[in-house]
Write a protein that binds this DNA or RNA. Structure first.
Lengths: 146, 146
DNA sequence: ATAATTGCAAATAGTTTGCACCTAC
DNA sequence: GTAGGTGCAAACTATTTGCAATTAT
């Protein structure tokens, strides 16, 4: 299961990189992998305070920053101003709902999986890319249509 | 020329949509089209205050919001927190430099020009998408390498 | 033991809003 | 003349930072 796999990955990574395995880090990884959307800091914080009162929003920010540095999670730029986070670090397209701001995976893996180029003519070195689909999820579409 | 074309488009749009053609709106369109990168509000504001002292940052925000609504410009989500703006509203990939935050066009038009799908299996209606390449521009690459 | 991590409060960055004045039409 | 636009100051939202207390190893 994905959650188990990621928790193990976190433990291994902490050991090998000499990073402390704190309850906060475990908890953030747990709540992040428990969802199948890609939540914001506030959404994670809300999930976390239920199980772990006293948890600070600052810590959520810092834990996610650490995870990003360790390559355990990926920050997603949605069209909204809040950052979203994904524990699946593989390169895949995301859908952003303009209604509710939700960010989810786009399942058709035939779309948006491109060969990342190396260096462009004008010397720009490409190391990563993102494909983001923008639109309205089923729920928000229903609300707008009626 | 692109700048002339966009200024004309602005004038036409203002007339047809009953929107005032103010000196501020003309100036924002001029400084935006004069650059070939995709500037932030602050970059535009800096360019503007040279020619138009007394211009307010708030106005730059509001003018760009109006332009977006009229379909004259497109807001680009870079990885940084600042919004970038592009007067070329056609669907094309952008490159974002992780060093200096610069956003420019990706010239290879064969890459990232995809058929936008309609509605996914789970009811998500796609109305737009963005392809963003991430890396280091020539200048920043030089600074990192040495 | 000690270096890393956390939590709080305050700071910062980007953007938006309320309102009185101004200006394009 | 009037609806819409602008500029200022203040508010707001997301995120970051300084620092003292705590904790993982």
């Amino acid at each position: 299961m994905f959650e188990e796999k990621k928790l193990q990955e976190l433990k291994d990574m902490c050991r090998s990189r000499g990073v402390s395995l704190t309850p906060q880090r475990l908890a953030v990884m747990r709540v992040l992998t428990a969802r199948r959307d890609h939540p914001t800091v506030d959404q994670l914080y809300d999930d976390l305070t239920e199980q772990m009162p006293g948890m600070s929003r600052t810590t959520v920010y810092r834990v996610l920053e650490t995870f990003e540095r360790l390559g355990l999670v990926r920050k997603i730029d949605s069209r909204a101003s809040k950052a979203h986070f994904d524990a699946d670090t593989s390169l895949h397209p995301h859908m952003v709902c303009l209604g509710c701001g939700k960010v989810v995976d786009y399942q058709d893996r035939g779309f948006g999986i491109l060969e990342p180029p190396g260096i462009t003519d004008d010397g720009f070195e490409i190391i990563d890319y993102a494909v983001t689909l923008v639109g309205y999820c089923r729920q928000c579409r229903r609300n707008v249509d009626n």
